[in-house]
């Protein structure tokens, strides 16, 4: 049984909070629920960005996801 959307969001948030690396690939979230299709996970992760629970980090060629407090902008650095 796939997780509900809210359960999935919590699992993604937990994963992004606890992982040693602050930035994660979308594929790293697939493991949060092996029963959900990649596209479902991508839609949920994008929704979490709109809700402010996750942020994008992009090199320009690759995009990653992070918990807002865990990464800082280059502008501060």
């Amino acid at each position: 049984m796939a997780l509900s959307k809210e359960e999935l969001k919590d699992a993604i948030e937990e994963k992004a909070t606890k992982s040693p690396k602050p930035q994660l690939y979308i594929k790293d979230f697939y493991k949060c629920d092996p029963d959900s299709k990649p596209r479902v996970i991508k839609n949920v992760a994008n929704e979490m960005v709109r809700d402010g629970r996750l942020m994008f980090w992009s090199s320009g060629s690759t995009t990653m996801y992070a918990i807002p407090g865990r990464i800082q902008n280059e502008e501060g650095a």
């Binding site: 994008n46 960005v49 709109r50 942020m55 994008f56 980090w57 992009s58 090199s59 320009g60 995009t63 992070a66 990464i71 902008n73 280059e74 502008e75």
Partner: peptide, 20 residues
Amino acid sequence: WKHGGIVGVFGYGGGIVGRY
């Protein structure tokens, strides 16, 4: 030049490439 960053416009995850 430094590559990448968290810049973008709201609701979009592409179209802006952060450079510093």
